[in-house]
Simulated assay, not measured.
Amino acid sequence: MHSKVDVAVMIGSGVPAYLRTMGQSVCWVVLLNGERRGKAYCSRDEAEECKAVWLAQLNAEAPDSLH
């Protein structure tokens, strides 16, 4: 199965309460096949780093015939 990893932005009430209390009205999350994985990030760069880790892990787990 081919997995898709994306970064999505959350705005306003979609931002977790702990980030809203810190004044954040925007956050980014990593989605694996459309499902949120891990925590919400304060910057897109942090979310992109997490996405890169997911992609590396998924590539490492892929069967050798797909490399």
Rank of each mutant, 00 (worst) to 15 (best):
V15C: 11
V15Q: 07
V15P: 06
V15T: 01
A17E: 12
A17Q: 15
A17M: 07
A17N: 01
Y18M: 08
Y18R: 14
Y18E: 12
L19P: 07
L19A: 11
L19F: 08
L19W: 07
L19N: 14
R20K: 11
R20W: 00
R20L: 11
R20F: 05
T21D: 01
M22H: 14
M22E: 15
M22R: 13
M22D: 13
Q24R: 12
Q24E: 09
S25Q: 14
S25I: 07
S25P: 02
V26R: 15
V26A: 08
C27P: 04
W28V: 04
W28E: 04
V29C: 13
V29A: 13
V29I: 15
V29R: 13
V30L: 05
V30R: 12
V30N: 05
V30Q: 00
V30K: 04
V30F: 01
L31I: 06
L31K: 06
L32D: 00
L32S: 01
N33H: 11
N33D: 15
N33S: 11
N33W: 02
N33G: 12
G34V: 05
G34W: 10
G34N: 00
E35K: 13
E35L: 08
E35Y: 04
E35T: 07
R36G: 00
R36N: 11
R37M: 08
G38V: 00
G38Q: 09
G38M: 00
K39Q: 14
A40W: 02
A40T: 10
Y41T: 04
Y41G: 07
Y41A: 07
C42H: 08
S43W: 06
S43F: 11
R44W: 04
D45L: 03
D45W: 06
D45G: 08
D45K: 12
D45S: 12
E46M: 12
E46V: 03
E46W: 02
E46P: 02
A47N: 02
A47P: 01
A47K: 06
E48G: 07
E48C: 00
E48N: 12
E48W: 01
E48I: 12
E48F: 03
E49A: 00
E49K: 15
E49W: 08
C50R: 15
C50L: 04
C50S: 15
C50H: 13
K51G: 03
K51A: 11
K51W: 01
A52L: 02
A52R: 15
V53C: 10
V53L: 14
V53E: 08
V53K: 07
W54A: 05
W54H: 14
L55E: 15
L55H: 05
L55D: 03
